[in-house]
Amino acid sequence: MTDKKNIMEYETVALDDNETSVVIIDQTLLPGRTQLIHLKTAEEIWDAIYLLKVRGAPAIGVAAAFGIYILAKGIDTQDYAAFYKELVKQKEYLNSSRPTAVNLSWALNRMEEVCRTNEKLPVALIKEKLREEAIAIKEEDIWVCKKIGEYGLDLVKPGDGILTHCNAGQLATSKYGTATAPIYLGQERGYNFHVFADETRPLLQGARLTAYELQSSGVDVTLICDNMSAAVMRNGWINAVFVGCDRVAANGDVANKIGTSVVAAVAKRYNIPFYVCAPTSTIDRNTKTGDDIHIEQRPAEEVTEMWYKERLTPEGVKVFNPAFDVTDHELITAIVTEYGIARAPFAQSLQEIFEKSREMKNKNK
């Protein structure tokens, strides 16, 4: 399905009306074409995540949750042991699609936990509980992003210049985005931010997605190439940097789209605060430091051929194409979560964030 609505009017990830497929925007076609695709099989869901048709850590988590629910509906058995065995098989397959974004395994583990803790129920009721959990994951994502936006907005003032890298916007989440949430809330309240969006090579998520959705929302946005960040900072045009992330280590090191660490280092040079917007679901306390984060390696063709009419580089040239890099916690001013803002020492402040999270969840039970 192709449509001409404003891109912000679409849901990034949804169930179709009959709940037989996961509906996503094929983000590889943006901004030139807006096409909704329906994912029904495990292979289609896996491919959509791996090929970046759906991308951004929170959106990947939501897509995986909906996906495992759709696949669970198709498991034709009333025997719990057989059902659970097949569910875990499908879960592990989907989890292999992308290794760095922790939200993928986080969402799938939540879905498996629902199955495991309801083993006494009939399989039909377990499937209904999986549906409820998948919807809850999406609704929580919207709440989380808005809370991150509120906390992030307290870190800036009207008229500020903001730099962002990659796409941590609505297209990467269910709504608002993470790094863009303060921008969208500020836009609603007349803050009149001036946003600079890094192009974000080699997949150009900043150029194709962030610039597109910000412009579609009426935000004053200027696109720059990745190697221009120092120039705009030196000119005094940037008051803060907001980025998203795919995984936060226990010590505050962060894995985000390749090039993020360069922006952080340059921001440090010009004394500009560097803020990471991270739902607590992206914080992996089992990962001690950034050195322990597995960095996904992407196909060479993304550098040599994609987005170009003709091949850009000579045949046979070697290519190093990591999808992410690690930003050292010493370069990070603060990590903005839905439960507050963590600052150095991050091992302590992130632990306090989790304690607050646990208290809030227990209070709401």
Rank of each mutant, 00 (worst) to 15 (best):
I148K: 01
Y151P: 08
G152N: 05
L153P: 11
K157T: 12
G159W: 08
T164Y: 03
H165P: 01
A168Y: 05
Q170Y: 12
L171V: 09
A172D: 04
A172S: 05
S174C: 05
Y176E: 04
T178E: 06
T178V: 07
A179Y: 11
A179H: 09
T180L: 14
P182Q: 02
I183V: 14
Q187D: 13
R189L: 14
R189V: 14
Y191H: 06
Y191A: 05
F193Y: 12
V195D: 01
V195Q: 00
V195W: 04
F196Y: 13
F196M: 11
A197T: 12
D198L: 15
E199T: 06
E199F: 06
T200V: 10
T200Q: 09
P202H: 08
L203P: 07
L203S: 07
L204A: 07
A207W: 07
L209S: 04
L209C: 01
L214W: 14
L214P: 10
Q215V: 15
S217P: 15
S217W: 13
V219R: 00
D220N: 11
V221P: 03
V221D: 02
L223K: 11
I224S: 01
C225K: 13
C225I: 15
C225L: 11
A230V: 11
A230W: 09
A230L: 11
V232S: 04
M233F: 02
R234Q: 13
N235S: 14
N235D: 14
W237N: 11
I238D: 08
A240D: 01
A240L: 02
V241A: 07
V243K: 08
V243I: 11
D246P: 03
R247G: 08
R247L: 10
R247P: 05
